[in-house]
Simulated scan of single mutants.
Amino acid sequence: MSTLSAINLSTVLVLGATGKTGRRVTALLGSAARPASRSSATRFDWTEPETWGPALAGIAAVYVVPPDNPAQLAEFVPLAVKSGVTRLVLLSMRGAPDDDPFEASIKESGVEWTILRPTWFMQNFDEDLFAAPVRHGELAVPAGQGIHPFIDVLDIAEVAVAALTRPGHAGQTYDLSGPEALSFAEMLARIVEVTGNPVLYTDVAPEDFAASLRGLGYPDEIADLVTMLLVRIRTGAEAHLSDGVQRVLGREPRTFADYLGSSSFA
């Protein structure tokens, strides 16, 4: 029997509860969730280890949105296990290496674990990195005409909830993607069809894009990582589809049209 099938499901800690995936995982879990972030009622800050213990009290499963520093996760996981956590679900990313330190901390925890490796989020167009440029009418990224199967964050959240609350997902790494690979120009054209507001797509040099992120306050390592991931789209390395959503949920992932219909663009 799964550990979680025999316990009170009001013991699922959701880290990053105000973020794109965390908000949706929290909503899907309802009263089963204990949302935690720097601004939640249950306060959690990766840079303040004294907030970790109280957040973990009575918790059996954790949805882990990792910190920037892998050493913090490596310190958190043993504390979580010692406090009684028996299941960990990590939000990783497509292309994470097999020796990824974040994934290693989860896999070496000694408890049930599941790794989620999603593609880029569709919601980046209206909630995050690309939102302001799209609103202002021009998105400039170093992706060329490369295509990528962006995923709806709600699909990630539904997979996460399944892994957190149902048996059969322990020791699994799920690669998650949307059902179609599109270029940035194609996605922006579809946004324009919905909003009627023109948006120009501009391909820029990777070094110029990284510099623009630094100018917005992103740390060097994050600016370089985001740029590298976009360049992988440019080269065609990120065009392939993944079947994790189908394997876990038994249905096709949401399309870009589905996302647009439920987004702030609608």
Rank of each mutant, 00 (worst) to 15 (best):
D45C: 05
V226M: 12
A57E: 09
L260G: 02
S10M: 08
V192D: 00
T165N: 09
N197C: 11
P54V: 02
P49E: 10
A170C: 12
G58T: 09
G22M: 09
F130Q: 03
T11H: 13
A185S: 13
P133C: 07
R23G: 10
V89C: 09
D98K: 13
D126S: 15
F265H: 07
S177I: 00
V85G: 01
F121P: 07
D243F: 15
G19D: 06
S2V: 05
Y174F: 15
E180A: 15
L28D: 04
I115W: 06
L56D: 00
S109T: 01
I7G: 03
T47P: 00
V62C: 10
R23H: 08
T26I: 10
L4H: 05
I59C: 04
L182E: 14
E221A: 14
G53S: 10
L9E: 10
I151T: 04
L241V: 03
G144Y: 00
E138V: 08
A211L: 13
R94Y: 05
P66C: 06
L116H: 02
F102Y: 04
A55E: 04
T173S: 13
W52G: 02
T86M: 11
T26R: 08
G19Y: 04
S183N: 11
A205Q: 15
A223K: 01
S83V: 12
